[in-house]
């Protein structure tokens, strides 16, 4: 009976199994194989063992791309977490035109990244951009954003604040699920607003924070479109990220073997980071089921 059910179950999910085999397992397996070949896009692959992996260890560009990507992750994720929780709290207050505020805050998140990056490229423009004109109006001389490694990175990271929509909405829904009596009880006990936030609300939504952080990590680790459009990776590779190196190695330098190596390593790194986060997160996340 159970086995017959298994047959039925597998039949129902068979479209996914086929897709999984063809568009996930096969590419991953091929990727592992290509990562052990010398293969230029325009010629046939030749097996070379672990040569590409050895090269990766000593590759200066890999070090730069890794550092940039890590820096980006480490700054972006806390920034986005704080911003999206703050916005969610603000938008959860009872107010008139609530739908309007939510739609306005969410809207930029549905825009195509190519278009959003294009708009921001103009907004950051040293001479025409509204950012520097605004700074000028308050008496601050804006930087030439894309001329300095630091400012270019800052520009790219700041742009993320406009795509907090999905995370913000998830927090919004989870705030709705925080039991009201907990907060009221704390409030009666004289706990301040901040105290209630830190000791009641945040622990209650901590599983959702973990979820969003993991999604954020996966997205941040493959950042590509925004720097590709805004800076092209410069100056001095200051905004050159891992995915851009994968793309360049494959389709600009024609080095598919090495590009596959970079891709496999990227996948393993994301996998390990996610597992690590889950393990660490488990110790801090408060699950309601575990309430005494």
């Amino acid at each position: 009976m159970r086995w017959r059910n298994t047959g039925t179950g597998l039949l129902w999910i068979s479209p996914w199994i086929v897709g999984f085999a063809c568009f996930t397992i096969l590419p991953l397996a091929l990727g592992v194989w290509y990562s052990m070949t010398d293969w230029t896009l325009l010629e046939a692959p030749i097996p070379v063992g672990t040569e590409n992996y050895e090269r990766l260890l000593g590759d200066q560009v890999v070090h730069v791309a890794l550092w940039n990507t890590l820096l980006y992750i480490v700054i972006t994720i806390p920034l986005l977490t704080v911003a999206s929780i703050a916005l969610a709290i603000l938008l959860s207050r009872p107010a008139r035109f609530q739908a309007l505020w939510r739609v306005a805050v969410f809207a930029p998140s549905v825009l195509p990244l190519v278009a959003l990056a294009t708009i921001f490229k103009l907004m950051y423009d040293g001479e025409l951009g509204v950012v520097n004109r605004g700074l000028d109006a308050v008496g601050v001389q804006g930087p030439e954003w894309f001329a300095s490694e630091t400012w270019a990175m800052v520009a790219i990271i700041l742009m993320n604040l406009w795509v907090v929509g999905p995370a913000m909405v998830i927090y919004l829904a989870s705030l709705r699920d925080v039991p009201r009596d907990l907060n009221e009880a704390a409030s009666i006990d004289g706990v301040t607003w901040w105290g209630r936030l830190v000791h009641v609300t945040l622990p209650m939504i901590s599983p959702v924070i973990l979820f969003n952080v993991i999604i954020g990590l996966i997205n941040a680790a493959q950042v590509f479109v925004v720097p590709y459009i805004m800076t092209g990776g410069g100056p001095n590779r200051g905004t050159y990220f891992w995915s851009m190196y994968v793309y360049d190695a494959a389709f600009r330098y024609g080095d598919m073997g090495y590009a596959s190596t970079l891709g496999i390593v990227q996948f393993l790194a994301i996998l390990l980071l996610t597992i690590g986060l889950l393990l660490v997160g488990r110790r801090f996340v408060f699950y309601r089921g575990a309430m005494p």
Partner: peptide
């Protein structure tokens, strides 16, 4: 020079 490059001109 960065200031020079970011100064507004009427030609982009």
């Amino acid at each position: 020079l960065r200031r020079f490059q970011s100064a507004p001109t009427d030609n982009p």
